[in-house]
Design a protein around this nucleic acid. Structure first.
Lengths: 140, 140
DNA sequence: AAACATTTGCAACATAGTTGCATTTTTGAT
DNA sequence: ATCAAAAATGCAACTATGTTGCAAATGTTT
């Protein structure tokens, strides 16, 4: 399992043309294991002793984002959240749910939205997102 | 016209049970005239000489938001945007479009979304929003 | 006009995210 | 294996959005 994940991550980085670095592997593993959007702060806390600088996390996430490996969600908190781009492209992303009590975020559907790329004439849409907020089953 | 707007704003504040203050009237007028979401910074810049403190703007917007007169949109920029709650409730809001070039934001439809209130079982949805980003007709 | 509640302005603070630069790591060629 | 070039990292300092506490000013009610 863990072996397979390592290989998979190696493959992802290679395909994306990104350097294979300790931090990228670490952060991708976290995102795989979490299975939901994580903020920089959560990643830093989880890394613990791994000596991960804040700036490095942001830059690592940015490179993964630019390579299309990771999706960036602008949720209602000040901090952006990042997750594996399994079911997203840079342009189109599935809906999220944020619990206002525990702060957890969840992906609501397995498919990108069936929304047309050009919704109104003359507007070129490069990113779209649905965001829902409230209480998750554990908090309600 | 201007006379009518003043009266309308007085009425709004009265109905909402809010004190009638210079700043609330000023900011509501701006939002009426803008007809689209404004950030704190834009409001401050537009107020110009009117000596509006940053904190006052935030607190004014918050009181208007809590009264349901104003909607708060968490767009992709760091700054929140605020607009009149014409076609929004606190819980449900219409889709927006943000131009990545000029930063302008637009309301895409005149109606709240026909999305069901409880989308998945066990999740209580208190706020929902669709956000699109790209180039507006003036920039594309 | 007086008493009370709310709003305002100011200063200080908290936090997300960015920039520049010197150092280290990764990669590809020898 | 080693070396040079390219890219990633860590650090310090910085920017910007938004928040908090408190005293002074303003709005409301009687």
């Amino acid at each position: 399992m863990s072996e397979n994940l390592d290989e998979h991550i190696d493959e992802m980085l290679k395909t994306a043309g990104l350097y294979h670095t300790e931090n990228r592997v670490l952060i991708l593993k976290m995102l795989f294991k979490a299975g939901k959007p994580l903020s920089q702060e959560k990643i830093a806390r989880q890394a613990g002793t791994n000596n991960l600088d804040k700036v490095t996390i942001y830059r690592t996430l940015e490179s993964l984002f630019n390579a299309g490996l990771v999706h960036k969600a602008f949720l209602n908190k000040r901090a952006s959240h990042y997750e594996l781009a399994h079911r997203c492209t840079k342009k189109q992303c599935h809906p999220h749910f944020t619990c206002t009590k525990c702060g957890s975020t969840h992906c609501l559907v397995d498919l990108a939205l069936p929304m047309p790329v050009s919704y109104h004439k003359g507007f070129i849409i490069n990113h779209q997102q649905v965001h829902l907020e409230g209480l998750c089953p554990a908090c309600s």
